Simulated scan of single mutants.
Amino acid sequence: HNPYENGLLVEAQKKYGKKVQMGNQQRSAKTSIMAVQDIRNGIIGEVYKGEAYYSNNRGSIGEGKIIDVPSSLDWELWQGPAPREAYKDNVHPYNWHWFRNWGTGEIHNNGTHEIDICRWALGVDLPETVTSFGGKYTFQDDWEFVDNQQVTYSFSGNKFITWTGHSRGLMKPERPGRGATIYGSKGTIELSRESYQLYGLDGEVIKTELEGGTSATIDTMGAGDLDGMHIANFFNAIRIDEPQNSPIADASVTTMLCHLGNMAQDAGETIQIDTTTGKVLNNEKAMASWKREYEAGWEPKL
Rank of each mutant, 00 (worst) to 15 (best):
I189E: 02
E106H: 12
Q244W: 05
P300V: 04
S60Q: 02
A288R: 10
M171Q: 03
I182K: 05
M229R: 11
V91I: 15
M221K: 10
G135D: 15
D142Y: 09
T275M: 15
V10C: 15
T181D: 03
G135I: 13
G212Q: 08
M229V: 02
K65V: 10
I44W: 01
T214A: 10
E211F: 03
I271N: 13
S185R: 07
T270Y: 13
D142H: 07
D141H: 08
G187F: 07
G297L: 05
K159Q: 06
W290S: 10
I39G: 03
G165Q: 08
A286H: 10
W163G: 03
Q244D: 09
H259Y: 14
L77V: 05
N236Y: 01
A223P: 02
E51F: 11
E204P: 01
K65M: 09
I115N: 09
Q150D: 13
S154A: 11
G297K: 04
P93V: 03
D250K: 13
E76N: 11
A180W: 00
E209P: 00
V47G: 04
K301T: 12
T152L: 13
M22G: 05
E85M: 05
I231G: 02
A237H: 08
E242C: 00
G224A: 10
K207L: 11
G200F: 12
S60V: 03
N282Y: 10
G157P: 09
V146P: 12
G64E: 01
A232I: 03
F145C: 10
G17L: 12
I39R: 06
F235V: 12
E76Y: 12
F133L: 14
E85C: 03
A286G: 12
D74R: 05
L191A: 05
V91P: 01
G45S: 07
D202S: 14
G123C: 13
Y53P: 00
Y196G: 03
I189N: 01
V146Y: 15
T275F: 13
K285Y: 09
E209M: 08
R58H: 00
E63Q: 09
I44Q: 05
N2M: 07
Y48S: 06
Y53D: 06
S71E: 15
D219A: 05
S185P: 03
E211H: 07
D116S: 15
G187D: 06
